[in-house]
Every structure is written in structure tokens, then in C-alpha cells.
Design a protein around this nucleic acid. Structure first.
Lengths: 214, 214
DNA sequence: TTTAATAAGATATTTTAATATCGATTTCGG
DNA sequence: CCGAAATCGATATTAAAATATCTTATTAAA
């Protein structure tokens, strides 16, 4: 059928892959040449079968008794996630969350680089946050188009989220990482990734409640 | 069997409940007296059947043709999540992420209140961040025990995460919200909720890659 | 008062993810 | 050099979630 046989992984698998990658990179630094699914599973507290199946989907091939060659498995995961080439991203909304994300050094290891930050507040525009000068959000769409930026990080107030998202799409941005508590309305072809702190908190709260009522 | 018939919801359901709650609160403000699963579903871009089943699990009972009485459905969700009484939380690690979380005003509406912040850096201890004075982390375990704090928010550097988690548990904390990229090792009875930015990014990256290769 | 429309609630089906089982292969210890 | 132990990889089973179907209750409009 297709020339590039890329098996489709489910969301749970995709979410585990970065955990493997982080551990494997550390193991490599420690001088390990092979990593078995068994070891990875034990280290992360997961089921070995899950790990094996997840790793299999990247196309990596392991050796009995030894596991997966370290370099191969690491690049297989990176390739699969599209992290072998870093993508550029724009961040809009330099509030608490935006500032925190600008300060996070790890994104480059996850295939992404925040190349510019934007805000609408004149008091913030022109200031430097974590080494990046904050630009006027009005210039964002055109810049996005000129620089072929594909990823937009949305850390604005909920009330303006939809408007800013529209501007991102206008600038040709294809994927929006949404940190606002807003259900965005976007065209079919735009990828939405919602980050919901409240959802995680709900899981935690409910578990706590159940435990307390035992 | 049990006097309190609390049906067990899966994680996906738990994660959707806060979305409903947020929308319902807004609808209530707008003067609506009833909310139907159909309307909620359309507003959030979800399947109506999913919404109905999720709402059913909270024990709320709706009326045909009208939907769920607004006040009842809102308190049903809050009760179910344990958000009708706010729980106290300690935050440890006042870096970028910790500062961002301290600045987030919405937690009170999600059943949680950050009552104190801690750090180990002498340059940070004593300063005030978003209205809260940062305390020495050395005092955290004893304070946690005295104040019966149940939730610990972990926003420290990866390398010290396990040690701080141990101290939290020593102080009687029962649930840890882990924002560090570390696989924590905790006793059976401690609830762990991991927040993985890399996982979300992985889903986004992979989708972008697939779309680009079409 | 009757009827059509809407939505809850129950049941059934399909799909997806997690878990278990087994055989084949290769390294390593004896 | 040979056998035991470990691991991959494939297949099968179970469990959970999403989706679909159908019935019934109730309201609002004709």
C-alpha cells in the first residue's frame, strides 16, 4: 500500500514514548549499550509487555537476551515522534504560565524550540523574559508566515484565547498547544493539543476522596 | 453492599468532568436553569452519549426534554470529585513552574488551596511570590503534619524530586502532584499524579508528522 | 387534549487498550 | 561446546472505553 509503513500508535503509547526516551538517554550516558524492555519497564513501573509493544511500533528491532541497541532504539523513538528535527514554535501570552514555559530548557530535547514570544500588554512588550524579547502580538501572524512556524503555544487569558488562536491559524500555524481553559473552535486541518491542569487535579482529587472513604 | 453507592469512573471520565463543570458554571451565570447532555456535548465538541454517561455516574438525575437541573448537576460533579470542600496543599520548588502555579487563581474553584510554598534556595526563602512567603523546605514535613495537609505539589529540579517526595510522605502527605520528569518511588498508599509536558508534546509532534507526510 | 419532539436512561455492539501465553532465538555460564 | 536463562516477537485473551440503538418519560406546541 503505502511506501512508508508507519504503524499507527494509540495516544497512550505516544504518551509513554517520551518516558522511555528520557530513561534511555540517561542509560546511554551511563555507558549502557543495550536496553531491554524488561529493564525499562521495571525502572518506570510499567508492564514489560506494554513497553515491548510500544517499542515495537517505532520499528526498532531488538536482540534476544540483550534487548535493543541503545543508539538504534533512541533514534527510532525520536524519528517516530518527529523529534529528530526540531520544529519552531511561537508562544503567545507571557503571563505566569508563558513565563514558566519560556524558562523550561528541556524543549529542545523534545523536538521543539520556542523562537519568539508575544503579548498584547504594552508593559510587557519589549521586555526580555528568559533571554527572549517579547514582541507585539499584532506582528505574530505575518512573522509566523514568513518563518514557516508550525506550532503555536497558547498561554493567554481564556477570554482572548479564541481570537489569538484565529490569528495563529491566519499565520499558517498548523498545531496549537492550548494551555487555556477554553474549547477552541478550529478548522479541520489544525491540530489541537489541550493541556488541562483541572483534569489532572480531578483524577487526583477523586482518588484521594475514595481512599479517604475506605 | 456498601452504604454509599459510589460507582467507579474511569480516568477518561474523570478528566472530562472538570470540562463539564466549567461550562455548567458559566451557563448558570448566564441564567440557565437546566442543562442537557446534548447541549453540553455540542459546546465541548464531544459525543452526547459520552456526556450522558459521564453525568450519570455522578448520581445526578435529569428530566426528559429539559436536561439536568443546573444546581443539582453542578453540585453532583463537585461532590463526586471531592471539590465541595477545598483541600489544602503545599508547593515545593519555587522555580518557573512553581511560580506559575502559585500565580494561578483558579485552584480554589477546583477544590484545592495552596497554603504554603517552600524552597531550599536561601536566595528565595523569605521572598514573597504571588502573595505567599516562601518558607524553608526543612520545615515542610513538620508543618504538613501539624496542618494535616494532604496534597503536595512537586515543582523542584528532577535530581532532588525523590528526596523531597520522601519528605512529603514523612509529613503525612497522601497525594503528590508531580511536575518533575522523574519516576517517583512511593509507598502503596500514596497517590501519584504525574504531569508530563513531554507526553502531550509527543502526541502533538506525532500528529504533525503524520499530517505533514500525507 | 392530542401529538410531535426532545432527552434521559438502559442495553448492545464495536473498537481499543491492557494483559497473558507461547515459541523462537541468542547469549552466557558451566 | 552445550544447556539454561533471558528476551524478543507473535498470538490470544481479557478488560475497558467509545459508539450505537432503542425505549420511555415529559414537555411544549398544535
Amino acid at each position: 500500500m503505502s511506501q512508508m509503513e508507519r504503524k499507527t500508535a494509540g495516544v497512550p503509547t505516544l504518551k509513554r514514548l517520551p518516558l522511555y526516551l528520557r530513561l534511555l538517554r540517561k542509560m546511554k550516558e551511563d555507558g549502557e549499550n543495550y536496553a531491554s524492555g524488561t529493564v525499562v519497564a521495571k525502572e518506570l513501573g510499567l508492564d514489560p509487555i506494554v513497553v515491548r509493544k510500544d517499542l515495537a511500533i517505532t520499528g526498532a528491532v531488538g536482540r534476544p537476551r540483550l534487548g535493543f541497541p541503545m543508539d538504534e532504539i533512541i533514534s527510532a523513538i525520536e524519528e517516530y515522534l518527529g523529534w529528530s528535527n526540531t520544529s519552531d514554535a511561537f508562544l503567545v501570552g507571557v503571563g505566569s504560565m508563558g513565563t514558566a514555559l519560556l524558562g523550561y530548557k528541556g524543549f529542545e530535547q523534545h523536538g521543539m524550540r520556542i523562537v519568539a514570544a508575544f503579548d498584547s500588554n504594552p508593559a510587557i512588550i519589549g521586555t526580555t523574559v528568559h533571554g527572549k524579547t517579547v514582541l507585539d502580538v499584532a506582528k505574530m501572524p505575518e512573522l509566523a508566515r514568513r518563518m514557516h512556524v508550525q506550532i503555536g503555544i497558547l498561554t493567554v487569558t481564556a477570554s482572548v484565547a479564541q481570537g489569538v488562536a484565529d490569528k495563529m491559524i491566519e499565520g499558517g500555524i498548523r498545531a496549537i498547544w492550548n494551555f487555556t481553559p477554553t474549547s477552541l473552535d478550529v478548522p479541520e486541518h489544525v491540530i489541537l493539543q489541550r493541556e488541562e491542569l483541572a483534569s489532572s487535579l480531578a483524577v487526583l482529587s477523586h482518588r484521594l476522596l475514595v481512599e479517604n472513604s475506605l
